[in-house]
Design a protein around this nucleic acid. Structure first.
Lengths: 150, 150
DNA sequence: ATTGAAAGAGGTTGACC
DNA sequence: GGTCAACCTCTTTCAAT
């Protein structure tokens, strides 16, 4: 992972559709070199894909919340079953499995407060393993688009 | 936003580099129609970009944590200054501004536990407005790649 | 809005350094 | 690992519907 790889990752995280020629020109290398580098980054599992990104509000899901969940008993089976369950919920954007007092943190995006209420009361609290739920509404969310090598 | 738009969003979230021809063929429309639809989705602010996606572990940042933060006093200035500060930290992948007992939730990705320790002790607790910090290590994280219209 | 065809731009390969 | 050149596919435009 040299300077060229790092620069490619930077540019492609910024705009996944930058053309190969364009990247090559900006980095001062031949297009085929550039192509080979990108292929190598994918083969090494560093660059894992290219994704179109949508605006949540424009998709009619302008209300976001984070939901901290505790399940009991905290056995492997209970944790894994609950994880599989929440990952299938369309309202759930992101699932964190955690150490500490909470077992899960769910990031959800919903239409409105009624929808949020329904997700918590009708979907989550239905589960028998659920021991505790704390919902916080998200005022603002910022995700870094460019991740640099550690 | 009809069935065609929804299908395009689905395919492009799955693979942001699907060619226009390919999309057109699969959806049974002309390439130019497809191109126009995608352009419209971008103009309407529904499709906001295309991003290369990297693997955190492969980037040498295999340890993730979520950090709940309370700041005092919770005035606009204090909140906004702290938000701007954490959004500039390279270890921070995502920032949530919240209602409830915590004001912020930070998702960080770091090299190892020493690095995590340094982020919390040297970067965060340096700030005078910081009133409370609770760090949870992330065992697993799953982000939904395809977001459907609400 | 959608189409089809034409023109220009980009991706990809392989022989060579 | 990097380059150059040729081929071939794709994007993009535009007149027509």
């Amino acid at each position: 992972m040299d300077e060229l790889d790092a620069a490619l990752l930077r540019f492609l995280q910024e705009d996944g559709r930058r053309t190969n020629r364009d990247l090559a020109r900006e980095l001062g290398v031949a297009p085929s070199t550039c192509l080979e580098r990108v292929r190598s980054l994918r083969e090494r599992g560093i660059l894992v894909g290219f994704r179109g990104e949508v605006d949540l509000a424009a998709m009619g899901r302008g209300l976001q919340a984070v939901i901290a969940v505790r399940v009991r008993p905290p056995t492997r089976k209970v944790i894994e079953d609950f994880q599989a369950f929440v990952e299938r919920m369309p309202e759930v954007i992101s699932v964190f499995v955690l150490t500490g007092s909470d077992d899960f943190l769910l990031h959800v995006a919903v239409r409105d407060t009624d929808h949020l209420h329904a997700v918590v009361l009708d979907e989550l609290t239905k589960r028998e393993e659920l021991a505790d739920v704390r919902t916080s509404v998200v005022y603002g969310h910022h995700r870094r688009t460019i991740i640099t090598p550690g």
